[in-house]
Amino acid sequence: MTRALSGDAPTLPQEVQRTLHAHPAISPTLILVAAWITFTVINPRFLQPGALSLLVQQTAIVAILAVGQTLILLTAGIDLSVGAVCVLAAMVMAKITSEQGVPGVLAILIGIAVAMAAGLLNGILVTRLKLPPFIVTLGTLSIFTAIALLYSKGATIESGVLPGELNSTGHTWSVGAFRITAGVLLVLLVYVVVGVALRKTAWGRHVYAVGDDAQAAGLAGVRVGRVLLSVYVVAGVIYGIGAWVMIGRVGGASPNAVVDANLESITAVVIGGTSLFGGRGGLLGTLLGALIVQSFSVGLALAGVDGQFRLLAVGILVILAVSVDQWIRQVKA
């Protein structure tokens, strides 16, 4: 069969298609490099240590939420409740320390547990009631947002009343002219841990298989429901860690924070080359995607362009990324 096909040499577009198919992180890498070159040419301050450090710090929250979003998109699901879960966890962490006097570390763990429970609820609704993830998380988006607002009475909790542990993700080290926060390192750690789990473990293989073809995975002996449920729970834990990162970055817990996180995390994942239809993509692309989105914000601001153009650019990128994904998926033997 291969012999028969190798008779006619593949054309250039076919080669490109095949290469992108084998290495989905290539397109986001190219976009990021092109964006950085362009923005640096327009304004040389873009790649200065100061601006770059800020860029990375600003990316951190969306980047960590996008890890959970990647897991869920890989299973051909979608999570619209990301931001709401993150805010709920942040409010719980901040409120139980500042009002009930719960020790900082314990408060962080309880906050993460709340986020995990939220993920579990999403997972149960998806796997047991067999509801589509879009509808489930659309509903829980409102539910978790409402709980967060009711629980916090709509009030922001400033970092001043919080113990050191909660603010510790905002701690900054200077490495030469660069400034790195503990939050950024924590986000990178999450990327490494989840990345290794996805690539090197049976669980990771099953996540891809379930998203790729749930029926085939089930027939091959993969416990589809259990894998799906685990993905939603793990995503919840990641959103909980994201809440901690957010408290350090924003300087306190606000029920109105990260309102754009839902769409931004999906945007980052999709620009990063993970397929909305599941089974294809990975965390490297997501990290690049999150950086791309933030680079457009910072770069366009430094270029003195109206901030609305950022939205325009990101919108075009999303459509471009999904088109490329559609094209790659049609790769032939």
Partner: peptide, 16 residues
Amino acid sequence: LGVAPALDIASNLFLG
């Protein structure tokens, strides 16, 4: 329905 298309050959053979 036998195989998961995006997974590689070895992964499919040993899936589950």
